[in-house]
C-alpha cells in the first residue's frame, strides 16, 4: 500500500494524470493466465508420469487436479498485492509441474 500511495503522490506532485489500475490489471491477468494455464497443462501431462499406472486413471487424476488448481492458482497469483510475487507463485508451481514431467522416471 505504501508503494501505491507514494507513487500516486509523486504523480500528483509532478502533475501527471494518474492512470486507472484497470489497464495494468489487464496485462497482469493475461500474464497470470498464461503462467497458470501452463502449470495446469504440465500437471495434466505430469500425472501420466507420477500418477496411477493405468493411463485412463492418470489422465483423469491430472485433469481433476488441473481444473481445481487453475482457479485457485489464478486467484492467488492475481490477488497478491505485488504483481511480481503473484507471478513468482504461479511460475514456481509451473516449474515444479514441468520438472515432474521431465525428471520423473
Amino acid at each position: 500500500m505504501t508503494f501505491e500511495i507514494s507513487s500516486a503522490a509523486r504523480s500528483r506532485r509532478s502533475g501527471a494524470i494518474v492512470s486507472s489500475p484497470a489497464r495494468r490489471w489487464i496485462w497482469r491477468a493475461v500474464f497470470v493466465f498464461a503462467l497458470v494455464w501452463m502449470a495446469a497443462h504440465f500437471i495434466t501431462l505430469g500425472a501420466l508420469k507420477w500418477g496411477p499406472p493405468v493411463r485412463h486413471d492418470a489422465t483423469v487424476l491430472g485433469q481433476m487436479i488441473a481444473v481445481a488448481a487453475f482457479p485457485l492458482l489464478f486467484l492467488l497469483a492475481f490477488g497478491t498485492r505485488n504483481p511480481l510475487r503473484g507471478g513468482i507463485i504461479a511460475g514456481v508451481v509451473g516449474v515444479v509441474a514441468l520438472l515432474a514431467v521431465l525428471l520423473h522416471s
Partner: peptide, 18 residues
C-alpha cells in the same frame, strides 16, 4: 462448474503436449 469443466477437461487439458 467443477464437474462440468472436469467432464469436458480433455478439450482444454489434453493428456498430450500442446
Amino acid at each position: 462448474a467443477y464437474s462440468g469443466t472436469f467432464i469436458r477437461a480433455r478439450t482444454l487439458f489434453p493428456p498430450v503436449s500442446y
